[in-house]
Amino acid sequence: MSRISRILPNWLGIYAVAFMLFLYAPVVLLPLFAFNSSTIIAFPLTGYTTEWFTVLWETEALHSAVRNSLFVGITTAVLSTLLGACAARAMARYRFPVKRGIVGLVMLPLVLPEIIVGVALLVVLVQLGVPLSLWTVIGGHVLICIPFAIAILNSAFASLDQSLEEASFDLGESRWGTFRRIILPLVMPGVISSLLITFTISLDEFIIAFFLTGTDVTLPVYIWSQLRFPAKLPSIMALGTIMLALSVLLLITAEWFRRRAARRQGLDVQAPGGFVG
């Protein structure tokens, strides 16, 4: 036994704890101050209250921001999952020229800085004379969500044994019937997982929404606008707490669906391809 190996686990432990603190302490502060009775975001805590949640309930502008965000999120989730499914299917089933290059281009928004995407889209839209609205936000969100949808759906489509489709077809079922009775049920968990994750991404996204939105704001943009008023900070904390809880819930649900899909097809549940776990 060398000295390094005796010391190392210790250091690794400290590093791990520090890392987790750095990662999650701010997140923990969010609910902490959301239930704190003081309007000033600072320690020490002064008392427990649900007042800030009540304030949220009564703010009309917030409600319309939530409605906008839900509309953008759901539309984005449906569109990007639909397009992602087509791409994943093509990647799994067909060989075509420069496939790798095309796949790379489709996945590129994953690594492009959102501010670049946002500014670029804004310039193009303005040049084309397209009025900014929630639909332009949806366009931007679909662009950045498609790579995620593809990544999730690709594992669902790639693990689909082609002979299952042939067997269905051979047993007298039509193309549509085969899709409805075989392909769809088998990739459904992946589809739901993709819907949930793209919805979550769209719901949280700020930069593109900020650049591309017109008069209707989405929730993150609304929150940003409220940060200028210190008195409203605690209610933003409360809102953040709700969104955090919802996001975690959605991600867990999405991962649960992905694992169920893998189990159904008799695959290794621990195999990579998910975003959580």
């Binding site: 044994d161 002979s163 299952l164 042939e166 067997a167 269905s168 051979d170 075989i182 049920p185 088998l186 159904r264 097809q265 008799g266």
Partner: peptide
């Protein structure tokens, strides 16, 4: 056809 992999519908 009886497929080599049997192609039993898993669901």
């Amino acid at each position: 056809m009886v497929f080599q992999s049997y192609a039993i519908f898993p669901h």
